[in-house]
Design a protein around this nucleic acid. Structure first.
Lengths: 204, 204
DNA sequence: ACCTGAACACCGTTCAAGT
DNA sequence: ACCTGAACACCGTTCAAGT
C-alpha cells in the first residue's frame, strides 16, 4: 500500500463518515465544521468542494442516507406484520420511532428544515403510499371517522411527536428511555386507532 | 437626547431583539452571529459579554421568554374552557400548537436540546401540573384505559408532533397552513381522547 | 479529475484599556 | 459597571497552482 497517495480514493465517503462522527460527538447537527471533517479525512480545507457544493450539501447527503436506512427498516417491519393497510401504516410508524430512538442524530439531520426541503422529492413516494394505505383503511366497514386525511395526519403527528420527543431530549427529561420507544409507539398508535374505529362513548 | 452615549441603556434587551430578528430573517436558530447582533445594537463585538456568558446563554434567554409567553397563552386558553381536568389538558395542547404555528422560530429555539436542558427547571412546574390533571381525568368513572402516564405521554406526543410538523416544514410540504393549526389540534386531541374514553370496538 | 495551500471575509471569545 | 478595540484561534469558500 502506497503511503499518502495524492488522490484519496473515496474522499466523499470519508467526509460523510467524518461529518457523522463529529455530529455524534458534539451531539447535534451544528457542532461540526467542514474543515475538521477534511482534517479527519487527511485532506486540505478546499478538497471537500470537489465532492459537495457546500457544507449544507454534505448534510443533505447524510440526510438522504438516513432516509434510505429508514425506508429499509419500514419495509422490513411492514413485511413482518399483517398485510391489511392499517397494520402496514402502524408498522411504518413503529419502525420510524425505532429508527429515531436508535439513531437520534441521524434522525435530527434528516428533519432539519433545510435538509427536509432538499429531500422532499425523495419523500413524496412514501407519502403517496401512506395516503393510499390510509385511504384503503378508511374505506373498510365499521369506521367511525371516515376522514382519510385526518387519520393520516393524526398517525404521522403521533409518530413524529414520539420520535422528536426522543431526539430532542424531552423523554430523557421525563425518564423515558430508548428501550421504551417501540412499545410506546405500539401502544399509542393502537389507542389512536381506537379513536377512529371504536364506537363513541355513550354520553357524547 | 444625547447622540451616541457611551452606555447603551438597555443593551440586553436590544441584543435579544436583534438576535430574534436575525433568527427570523435567516429562518433558523443557527443562521445568526453574536457579532451581527452587536452590530445591530450599535456596540462592539465584546459588549454582549457583559450581559450574556456566551452566545448560547442568549439563546437560552430567548427560550425562556418564549416559555413565558407560551405559559401565558396556556393559562388564557385554559380559562376559556370547561374546568374539568381533561378539557384543561386539551386546552394547553391547543394553545401550544397555536403558539408554535404563530411563532415557529421562537418555538424552535425553545426546543433546541441545549436550550431545553437549561430550561428544564422552568418546565418542571408545568409538567407536574399536567401530570396531576391527567391523574384526575383518569380517576373519573367510565375510563377505558386507566393509565395516567400513558395518556399524558400520548397527549404530549400528539401535540408536540403537530407543533413540530409545523415548525419543521412538514405541514407546509403537505399543504397544511398555520390557519389550520388550531382546528387540527382540536380535532386530533379529541379523537385521541376517544381512544381512552370510548368503549372498544365490538370485534376486538 | 482531484487535491494543495494561500487568501478573503467572516466567526466566538478574551482582555487590557478607556469612560 | 459598562463598553471599546485589538488580538487569538478558528470558520466557509474560492482559486491559482500543482499531480
Amino acid at each position: 500500500m502506497p503511503d499518502k497517495p495524492y488522490h484519496h480514493g473515496d474522499l466523499r465517503r470519508a467526509l460523510l463518515d467524518a461529518a457523522m462522527a463529529l455530529i455524534e460527538e458534539n451531539g447535534g447537527p451544528h457542532g461540526w465544521s467542514l474543515r475538521e471533517a477534511a482534517r479527519r479525512a487527511g485532506v486540505s480545507p478546499g478538497a471537500p468542494y470537489r465532492h459537495f457544493e457546500d457544507k449544507q450539501a454534505l448534510l443533505v447527503a447524510l440526510g438522504l442516507e438516513g432516509l434510505e436506512r429508514l425506508n429499509a427498516l419500514c419495509a422490513e417491519e411492514a413485511a413482518a406484520r399483517e398485510p391489511d393497510p392499517l397494520s402496514q401504516f402502524r408498522a411504518m410508524g413503529i419502525a420510524t420511532v425505532r429508527f429515531a430512538a436508535h439513531n437520534p442524530v441521524h434522525y435530527r439531520v434528516m428533519n432539519l428544515p433545510e435538509v427536509l426541503m432538499a429531500l422532499q422529492p425523495h419523500l413524496q413516494p412514501t407519502q403517496d403510499r401512506v395516503d393510499q394505505m390510509v385511504g384503503e383503511a378508511v374505506a373498510q366497514p365499521g369506521v367511525r371517522l371516515d376522514d382519510a386525511a385526518l387519520l393520516s395526519l393524526a398517525g404521522q403527528a403521533m409518530v413524529y411527536g414520539i420520535a422528536r420527543m426522543f431526539v430532542d431530549g424531552h423523554f430523557a427529561a421525563m425518564g423515558v428511555g430508548p428501550d421504551q420507544a417501540e412499545p410506546l409507539a405500539s401502544r399509542l398508535t393502537e389507542i389512536l386507532g381506537t379513536g377512529f374505529f371504536a364506537t363513541p362513548p355513550k354520553d357524547a
